[in-house]
Amino acid sequence: FRDINFEPEALSAFGASLEDIRRRLHATDSEGQLLVGADVVIAVWRLTPGEGWLASLFGNVATVPLTRIAYDRFADLLYAWNRRKGRW
């Protein structure tokens, strides 16, 4: 993990700005591919012992579109809340 507050340029090679990173989770996989939003959460669940069932449930072909929509709405609310609280 890298803290964007200390390394805001960490994902600049992917064209991700500080505001992009604050709005959605960003990560790179073992092959260097950029993951954003719900895809990051699903990837973390896949790698976390005992959490693979969450990745199977929310990351399968049928449910991943809904997972992404739900994540995006939650991320929008969290971003707005942090802005209102003056955190950024």
Rank of each mutant, 00 (worst) to 15 (best):
F1H: 11
F1I: 07
R2A: 05
R2L: 02
D3F: 07
D3K: 07
D3Y: 09
D3W: 09
I4M: 12
N5K: 14
N5H: 13
N5F: 13
F6W: 00
P8S: 08
P8E: 09
P8N: 09
E9G: 08
E9S: 13
A10E: 14
A10H: 13
L11R: 10
L11Y: 15
S12E: 11
S12W: 03
A13S: 12
G15D: 05
A16G: 00
S17P: 03
E19R: 06
E19M: 08
E19C: 04
D20I: 08
D20R: 01
D20E: 01
I21T: 10
I21V: 06
R22G: 02
R22V: 00
R23A: 12
R24C: 03
R24A: 06
L25R: 13
L25H: 11
H26Q: 10
H26M: 10
T28D: 01
D29H: 05
D29P: 08
E31N: 13
E31K: 13
E31Q: 13
Q33I: 00
Q33C: 00
Q33K: 15
L34V: 08
L34E: 03
L34H: 05
G37C: 04
G37A: 05
A38C: 09
A38K: 03
D39S: 09
V40G: 04
V40N: 05
V40S: 06
V41C: 08
I42K: 12
I42V: 14
I42C: 06
A43Q: 12
A43T: 13
V44I: 15
V44L: 14
V44R: 04
R46P: 05
R46H: 07
L47V: 03
P49E: 11
G50W: 04
G50Q: 10
E51G: 02
W53A: 06
L54M: 12
A55L: 15
L57V: 04
V61Q: 13
V61G: 00
V61K: 15
A62H: 07
A62D: 07
T63L: 06
T63K: 14
V64D: 00
V64W: 00
P65C: 10
T67G: 02
I69L: 14
I69A: 15
A70C: 11
Y71V: 03
D72R: 15
A75S: 08
L77V: 03
L77G: 13
Y79N: 08
A80E: 15
W81F: 12
N82V: 04
N82Q: 12
N82W: 02
R83F: 00
K85E: 14
K85H: 12
G86A: 10
R87N: 08
R87M: 10
R87F: 10
W88S: 07
